[in-house]
Design a protein around this nucleic acid. Sequence first.
DNA 1: TCTGGGGTCCTAGGACCC
DNA 2: TCTGGGGTCCTAGGACCC
Length: 422
Amino acid sequence: MYALADCNNFFVSCERAFQPQLEGRPVVVLSNNDGCVVARSNESKAMGIKMGTPFFQLKSLVESGKLVACSSNYTLYGDLSNRVMRILSGTLPGYQKYSIDEAFFTLDGIAPERYKAVCGELVRRVRRSTGIPVSIGIAPTKTLGKVANHFAKKYPGYRGVCIIDSDEKRLKALSLTPIDDVWGIGWRGAPKLMAAGVHTALDFVERPEAWVRGRMGITGVRTWLELQGTPAIADELPAPRKSICTSRSFAEMITDKAELRLRVSDFAGICAQKLRSERSAAVIVGVFAHTSPFRKDLPQYYPYQSTRLDKPANSTQTIVQTALRVLDSIYRDGYSYKRAGVVIEEVVDASAIQGLLFETEDQIELQRRQDEISAIMDRVNKPGNNLLRLATQRPGHYADGIRRDHCSPLFTTDWNDLLEVS
DNA sequence: TCTGGGGTCCTAGGACCC
DNA sequence: TCTGGGGTCCTAGGACCC
C-alpha cells in the first residue's frame, strides 16, 4: 500500500504558521513579482478565486480588507518543507519526495489495522511540531492515493487520513470523483473526456482499455490501470535531474543589453550552484530571453539558443561566460525584454568527466583554479544571497528586481541577512 | 499599468543506417 | 510499365505535474 502525504494549501499554511492572525481569513500567496495567485486558503477558494488569477484583478479585494495577499517567500517554504518531510520520513518507510509539499511512502512493515492510527498520529505530530496541516491518503496505487488524499482533505470527518482498501470503497470514491480531479488528466484532456460522456473517474475506468489507448496514449492507459488498483507508475529512484533551469520575469521591462547581461549572469551563477550542489556538471548551456506576450502593442521576440561545452563543467565562471556568449548571439536591440533564463540541458555526473584529448597543462590549471574558486563561493554563499560573486553579476540579494510588496520576514532562516550585514 | 517558475515523459516525423 | 523493408536516433512540440 502507498501513503500520499500532502500539505494542505501549503504556501498559505506556511504564512499562517508564523502569522496566526491569518487563520480563518481568506488568504492568497502570489507568484514572483506579485504576478498571479499560486496558492489559496479554503476561504479564498470559497470566494471563487482561481489559481493563476492575475493579482491586479484582486487589488480592490485586498484594499477593502476582504482578502489578504502574501508575496511568495520560497526560502521560508523550503525550510518548512524540510521540517515536515523529516518528520514524515522518520516514521513511514519508502520515502519518495514528489514536490515541495507532498511525498509518497510505502507502508511496508506496518500492520494494516494500524495504518489509520499511525498516520493519524503523524498528521497530529506534523501539525504540532511545524504548524503545517497535512493530509494522508492510503491506497494500493499512487493515483488512488491521490484520490484518497482528496477525500482526507475535503471531509473533516476523516481527521486527515483516508484509506481505500477495498473494491467497494474504491468504486464509491471513483463515482464521487470528477474526471478533471484525477491525477494525470489535465485541463486539455478533461473536456474531451466529458464530451465523450466521461464525467467521473468511475465512468473512465468502465471504458475499455483500447478506447483509452486510442484517445490518450500510453499515459492514459497508466492512469486507467492505476484507478483499477493495478500499479503502473514506477517508484522513482532519486535520479539526478536531467535538466536545470533558472529563469525569472522582471519587475520592469529591460531594454538595455548591459542590464540583461547582469540578470543572465545571475541566472547562470544559480545554475552553476545547483549543479555543484548535486555533484553534476553541464554539457549544454542554453539561454532564452522573452518579450511580454501580453503586450500585443510591442514587437515580440522569443529567441532560444544553446551551446555545447568542450568538456562538462560546473564552475560559476565557465557557466556564466558561456551563457553570456550565447546571450550576445541572440540579443537584438529594440525589444523590451520581460523574462530571461538559463537552461542546462544535459546534466552529467561531475565525478566522471572525461578529459580532452588535446587539453593543455594551462587549460587544466585554469579549470582547477576555477573549481577552487567555486568551492570557496559555495562555502561562503548561502541560498538566497551571493556575497561572493563575479564582477559580471549583480550585487545584493537574489530577490532584488523582483517585486514582492507583501512579503513576510524570513522567520526561520534570517541568518542569511545577518551574515550579509556582518 | 499589472499575468510565475521548474520539471518530466511521450509522440510523430525526419534523418540516417543497412 | 516498374521503385522495399526494417531499424535507430534525434528533435520539437504537446501534455502533464507541482
